[in-house]
Write a protein that binds this DNA or RNA. Structure first.
Length: 585
DNA sequence: GCCGTTTTCGGCCCGACTGTTTTCAGTCG
């Protein structure tokens, strides 16, 4: 969470510098640094203490010193100095659509308007019209921007937005003259939340596309429209931006509008260094002659890089990796051979039967599925006796199924407040797969929570740490713990980190996945299904993994059944402290 | 403020749309 705070403060330095008309390149430098910090996979504090901050692109001596100050003291002199220059609350004005630094500066200096409320009054009583280049139309659009600003709840989760985006693209593909239509932007990059939808169309008849766009059922209000570009408000409350281009530009445009912005800047800068010019219309040589742009790959070829998957385009090392031929081969849904965290009716909140789970696993093409119901501390969770009976049922059905699919016995055992596990260790040792999770006492101090999790893993009985951060998107923050310490313990104890694919969890998140991989910790992509329908959610977990640079070889449930059994068998032997015979050839 | 395949100084990605103007500043992505 500290990274987010540091990023916010660097962003505020940029905002204020811009407001007081400082060097625009300095503004950009702080913006870029803020983004770099925000996207770091690990704690910025660590990099500071190891004197590695200036290794990051966009962070030099000055900004590194500011970050160090923030990390060590919680504040930063440069930030405080700048904050004293502007009235409190004025930065909020910059969050309004259509209101930028010039307008805010004019509002402040000419009218003394320094808050959203004051701006709203100025719009209503007309005093805002005294500003240069300010007419009734702009005043009204600002008033509406204030309304939207108050109404919007920020970004929206990808899985809620994607169906709308795909529906619009499908309809636009039917418009006469349309050759290609794709979703771009953060939706294509599969970010966990998105702030708007970007649509891209190649067409011989842009006018027909614009007309069709206005009439889409998902569109409620067109807010801007030109011959090739339009913006609108969607019924779900997000904005959608549309661009129409000729077919020979579609690849270059798809790259450009997929972003991220910082990735684009890095690629364009690279193109400039190679004597090329890159825009959404194509790749051009020194004489302005087009040398590519029909295909997205034209862009990468022009700057002498292999194709970089959209999920990686955040300018967090993907360009360097591409250059050195070490881009990951990202895990795909089809790589998964099973699900290791599924609930049934046997405990508390599960709603599907064992047979239904097995049947769904088979239809998803899985070789195996682990039955992991809740332990006794959850309401209606399994106690020792109930678990033994349940395990017998699982084994009986497993024999009957003859590997279609294989059923693994398991449990999602609570990690109690003191770090002990919620069932006797010898019983846990008899199971195929133990998921351990924190479900209570979320507000323990950082050190207590960290030790609690580490202690649970140190039993040697835990195969998977379930939803490791405990966050629920939009409702519960992650609990405070030292992820790096937990990852080190996970590596020592051979515990896999879960990527919980429930759309409200997505836990671990993409950055933490990448950090886990760097620590040599395995990941497992689980549905945590409480109903068989939830087992389809696994794709959301795959998206997170891909954004976290995860490859098939990093994922426990990409192993075949035989490989998984071997892996769990080795661990089971270590649990009992036995020497393991070398596997027979 | 950052950075270096021509550079330790002098550059810094590129273009569309809007509302205001009579040629463009501001904002956005």
């Amino acid at each position: 969470m500290e990274n987010a705070r540091v990023a916010r403060i660097l962003g505020e330095i940029a905002d204020i510098t811009e407001l007081v008309e400082g060097n625009p390149f300095k503004v950009r430098a702080y913006r870029r640094a803020a983004q770099v910090v925000d996207l770091l996979p690990g704690p910025v504090r660590e990099l500071w203490r190891n004197r590695q901050l200036t290794d990051l692109p966009g962070i030099g001596e000055r900004i590194a010193a500011h970050i160090g100050e923030l990390v060590e003291t919680g504040t930063c002199e440069e930030h405080e100095r700048l904050m004293a220059l502007v009235p409190p609350g004025i930065l909020e004005l910059l969050r309004l659509e259509g209101v930028g630094p010039k307008t805010v500066a004019a509002l402040w200096h000419t009218l003394g308007v320094t808050s959203v409320e004051a701006l709203e009054r100025a719009c209503q009583d007309g005093t805002i019209l005294k500003l240069p280049r300010m007419g009734k139309v702009r005043a009204e659009s600002i008033r509406k921007a204030i309304e939207r600003y108050r109404a919007r709840q920020g970004r929206m989760q990808l899985h809620r937005v994607l169906p709308y985006a795909e529906s619009m693209v499908t309809q636009l593909r039917e418009v006469p003259g349309v050759l290609r239509a794709e979703v771009a932007g953060s939706v294509r990059r599969l970010r966990e939340t998105v702030g708007d939808v970007d649509l891209l169309v190649a067409s011989r008849d842009p006018g027909a596309v614009m007309k069709a766009f206005r009439e889409l059922p998902e569109v409620t209000l067109v807010t801007a429209e030109g011959p090739t570009k339009a913006s609108a408000r969607l019924s779900i409350g997000l904005n959608v931006d549309l661009r129409v281009l000729p077919e020979e530009s579609f690849g270059a445009a798809l790259h450009y509008f997929t972003g991220s912005k910082s990735h684009n800047i890095a690629i364009r800068t690279r193109a400039v260094r190679m004597g090329l010019k890159l825009s959404e219309y194509g790749v051009f040589d020194r004489k302005g002659k087009r040398i590519g742009g029909r295909l997205e790959d034209d862009v990468f070829r022009a700057v002498k890089l292999p194709f970089i998957p959209p999920e990686l385009r955040e300018d967090t090392g993907e360009i360097e990796a591409a250059e050195e031929g070490r881009l990951p081969r990202l895990v795909e849904r089809g790589d998964l051979r099973g699900d290791l965290h599924v609930h049934t009716k046997a405990s508390s909140d599960g709603r599907s039967s064992l047979e239904e789970v097995a049947s769904m696993a088979r239809s998803l093409g899985y070789a195996y599925v682990a039955i992991t119901d809740h332990s006794r501390s959850r309401p209606l969770g399994l106690d020792e006796t109930a678990l033994r009976e349940h395990v017998e049922k699982v084994r009986t059905l497993d024999r009957k199924l003859r590997g279609r699919p294989h059923l693994l016995t398991g449990i999602e055992v609570d990690i109690l407040a003191d770090g002990s596990l919620d069932l006797p260790l010898e019983l846990l040792a008899s199971l195929d797969c133990v998921v351990a999770s924190v479900h209570s006492h979320f507000h323990q101090p950082r050190e207590v929570m960290t030790e609690r999790i580490v202690r649970a893993m140190s039993t040697g009985l835990v195969d998977i740490l379930g939803h490791p951060s405990g966050r629920q998107i939009g409702s519960r923050d992650p609990y405070d713990f030292d992820l790096e310490r937990v990852l080190r313990a996970a590596r020592e104890n051979d515990v896999a980190m879960e990527i919980n694919a429930m759309p409200d969890r997505l836990d671990l998140n993409d950055r933490a996945c990448r950090l886990a991989k760097q620590h040599g910790v395995a990941l497992v992509i689980d549905s945590d299904a409480h109903h068989v329908a939830h087992m389809h959610n696994i794709r959301y977990g795959v998206w997170v993994a891909r954004r976290g640079w995860i490859e098939r070889g990093d994922v426990l449930n990409a192993l075949s059944y035989e490989e998984l059994r071997e892996r769990l068998r080795r661990k089971a032997h270590r649990r009992r402290g036995e020497e393991l015979e070398p596997a027979s050839p």
